[in-house]
Design a protein around this nucleic acid. Structure first.
Length: 229
DNA sequence: CACCAGGCAAGTA
DNA sequence: TACTTGCATGGT
């Protein structure tokens, strides 16, 4: 994983210390849980505002139907597609979003996913954001976990944690929160991918709407008066 | 029963 | 620009 980095004041930053507190407690999270880049991208759309356990069911059904290929996803009717991904919720919406993605890859990249993913990072982000149904978090997840670029994914848990810990005010734009991480911690996709996964785990089991800080690995890094809000 | 989950786009003022 | 709303299943 991420080996020890050289010492220096730069690495005393709260975000960097938070990473080590989480990693020491829980170790590697092995994200993103997908067998192929296509599966990763499909999962990124299916998990929008949705519990991952439901996405797992949807992915399993796609595999069961042997539909998890660019061609088959694109050829299937929207109602078939929606039926397969039903357990992940918002299935009519997400069927159209998957169609928008596969359509773009066929129209602009000759149906070759590897060509899309070979685009330079800024260009790839721009293209993905141009697809209906792909916003900044989904785009950055794909950049990081499918294309291997060093971007920091910001989700609701990230926002909650940086606000509760007072690392940021909490009203910053997506890009500002992302930049707060990438400007303060070493640029390494493995590192960013692990950190994001650890934040999600902390968000799931501790930094919830009703926080459970008592056993959270970050409890010693909280502000003196406890979590904000 | 209520609440939550690894967002996004479209509408309104 | 800054809210608000629709989208939907499954687990706690």
């Amino acid at each position: 994983m991420v080996k020890a980095l050289k010492k220096g004041t730069r690495f005393e930053h709260p975000l960097y210390r938070a990473y080590h507190a989480l990693y020491d407690a829980w170790g590697a999270q092995h994200w993103w849980p997908a067998d192929t880049p296509l599966e990763m991208m499909v999962g990124a759309i299916l998990t929008q505002n949705t519990a991952w356990t439901n996405v797992e069911k949807a992915i399993a059904r796609l595999k069961e139907a042997d539909a998890l290929s660019l061609e088959r996803l694109h050829r299937a009717s929207l109602s078939r597609l929606a039926g397969w991904i039903r357990p992940s919720g918002y299935f009519n919406l997400k069927a159209r979003r998957l169609r928008a993605l596969t359509g773009m890859i066929f129209e602009r990249y000759d149906g070759r996913l590897e060509r899309l993913l070979a685009e330079p990072p800024d260009r790839l982000r721009e293209v993905l954001l141009g697809v209906w149904g792909i916003g900044p978090e989904t785009a950055d997840s794909i950049l990081l976990y499918a294309a291997g670029h060093a971007v920091f994914v910001v989700d609701t848990y990230t926002r909650r944690i940086v606000r509760r810990h007072g690392w940021l005010r909490g009203d910053e734009s997506y890009d500002d929160v992302s930049a707060a991480f990438t400007s303060q911690i070493p640029s390494d996709p493995g590192f960013y991918g692990e950190f994001h996964a650890l934040i999600v785990r902390a968000g799931k089991y501790h930094c919830r709407p009703r926080p459970d800080c008592a056993s959270c690995p970050l409890r010693f890094l909280l502000p003196p008066n406890g979590p904000r809000d």
